[in-house]
Amino acid sequence: MRMDVWMEGRDAPVGLLARSEDKSLSFVYADDIGPEHRISMSLPITPESYGDADCRGYFANLLFEGPQLERVLDGFGLGRGDIGALLWHLGADCPGAISVTPEGTGPGKMPGRFPEDYERLSDARLNQIVLSCISTVVCPRASATRHPSRAFRARSPASCSKVRFGCRRTVPARRHPIF
């Protein structure tokens, strides 16, 4: 199995992940990769291929846990140790900026592009948001304009959804300022 590794904000794969018949993994960066597209501190950009131990250390952590993983394990008869096959099936929706897709199929997710997908906040609005989050941890109610981040557009007016590790969590207001 050969899979493209994509990074948000780049129009071409950053590298190629391969799974051998013995289930070992290897990864090599694309030739035109600059330092800003390194996928991990543990995998610095080099023309040489990374072996199984280095790949497992990074790519296994892209997989999420839970019912979707269990369905794929059961449905395809895969073992938890077959990181390459799991990424083949689940890698298009990895948390964070990285996605892994079968070679030649394109990126798993399309990132937001500046300035087309976002609206610029006025200095006053940005100041209001920052001060509100510092003093109360509750984002101010949306104004007549949309919130620039898709993550906060569907929140309830009485609470603020903080996005952490790919999940949404409602954080109650603090009664006292932080400092």
Rank of each mutant, 00 (worst) to 15 (best):
Y58N: 06
D82N: 10
F64M: 15
W88V: 03
V72F: 12
S42A: 10
R80H: 11
Y58E: 06
S42T: 15
G57N: 14
L86V: 04
P67F: 10
A85H: 06
D74P: 10
A53T: 05
H89T: 01
W88F: 12
G91F: 00
G104E: 14
R71M: 08
L90M: 15
L78D: 01
G66M: 10
P107Q: 14
W88L: 00
A60L: 02
Y50A: 07
P67I: 11
D82H: 07
S49P: 11
L43D: 06
A60T: 02
G96D: 07
F59W: 04
G108W: 04
D82F: 07
G108Q: 07
L62Q: 07
E103V: 05
A92C: 12
L86K: 02
F76E: 14
L43Y: 00
D93E: 13
R56C: 09
F76M: 12
F59R: 02
G66F: 12
G81M: 07
G51S: 14
P44Q: 09
A53W: 03
G66T: 01
L87W: 05
S49H: 05
C55R: 03
C94A: 15
S40F: 07
L62Y: 05
G106R: 01
G75R: 12
A97W: 09
G75D: 11
N61Q: 13
A60E: 05
A60N: 01
D93T: 10
G51A: 08
G77N: 13
L43P: 03
K109R: 15
S42Y: 06
G77D: 15
E70G: 11
L78I: 09
P102A: 01
D93S: 12
P67Y: 12
I83H: 02
S42H: 03
P44F: 13
L62K: 03
R80L: 14
P102C: 08
R80T: 13
Y50P: 04
A92E: 12
T46P: 02
F76Q: 14
S99T: 15
L87S: 14
G106F: 01
I83P: 00
A53S: 03
L78V: 06
D52P: 08
G84I: 08
I39C: 00
D54Y: 02
P47A: 07
M41W: 00
D74W: 03
C55A: 07
A60I: 01
P47K: 08
R71Y: 06
